[in-house]
């Protein structure tokens, strides 16, 4: 297969960038999208040119490191798939794609397709945990949790923090990411003590980091590689208003 690429190149933070055209030759249908880019980069390096910067690590869809826009869609058009798990067999010879980094004020571009997502860490720092020190925890089976509750908590906890939800949202909102953590912990008995402060602090941090507000467009859920549901946002909103009334 031959694939045509138009790629955003930007030398560093706070400088301008531009699109450049590349062609990937001899693309095998068994390649992942990133393996296809590896091959393009190999060619660039051999020519003494700087390769396209993109990030990845696990290459199996779980670490959340990879991610960029493929023709306007975060991680590309395949549902429930990170770009490292997107295989070229889904495409046709001669296809063209435009590759761009996540675009969001809270995710400044570092280089080419790589952005700074440290704002997500800071949202977690605001309360995405249970305050328990190491040692002294009671026997695990002393906390009974119904299977349905545990499963629901897991559904939310599966978020990989890749940022596709922010990139897809016209407001660049981090509501899906933040609400997934809030929902995970608010479902479990272990998360009850800090339930009120958690939601207030995390929501506040989300705003101060420069993420936009949620206007229920649903784009985030549609592109989420882990299928994190919009219901999380509804839960977060409920939790938030309850907390506001309580405090």
């Amino acid at each position: 297969m031959r694939i045509h690429l138009t790629v955003w190149r930007q030398a560093g933070p706070n400088v301008g960038g531009a699109f450049h055209a590349y062609t990937a030759e001899n693309v095998s249908p068994d390649m992942s999208f990133l393996e296809m880019l590896d091959v393009v980069n190999e060619q660039l390096i051999k020519k003494g040119e700087e390769p396209i910067a993109f990030d990845s690590d696990c290459r199996e869809g779980i670490c959340g490191t990879c991610g960029f826009m493929i023709s306007g869609i975060p991680h590309g058009s395949q549902p429930h798939t990170t770009v490292c798990q997107l295989h070229m067999r889904k495409f046709n010879d001669g296809d063209s794609f435009t590759l761009e980094p996540w675009r969001a004020k809270a995710f400044p571009v570092l280089k080419d397709l790589v952005v700074d997502r440290s704002a997500f860490d800071r949202i977690i720092q605001a309360g995405g945990y249970t305050s328990v020190n190491t040692g002294g925890a009671k026997d695990a089976n002393n906390i009974l949790i119904g299977k349905d509750i545990a499963d629901a908590a897991m559904d939310s906890a599966e978020c990989i923090g890749c940022g596709a939800c922010v990139a897809a949202c016209k407001n660049a909102s981090a509501a899906l990411f933040t609400s997934a953590k809030i929902t995970h912990l608010s479902l479990l008995p272990q998360g009850q003590v800090e339930r009120t402060t958690r939601v207030l602090n995390m929501v506040e941090r989300m705003d101060t980091e420069g993420f936009g507000s949620c206007s229920n467009e649903g784009e985030c859920e549609a592109v989420c590689p882990k299928g994190i549901s919009l219901k999380n946002i509804a839960t977060m909103n409920k939790e938030f208003w309850k907390a506001v009334l309580q405090s």
């Binding site: 945990y129 925890a137 009974l144």
Partner: peptide, 22 residues
């Protein structure tokens, strides 16, 4: 033994049986 207790206290959503046990 302590690891599992610690992780559950943190809210790690381990798989559960219907009765609520791990």
């Amino acid at each position: 033994v302590n690891i599992i207790d610690q992780c559950v206290a943190q809210g790690v959503p381990f798989a559960r049986e219907y009765g609520g046990h791990l």
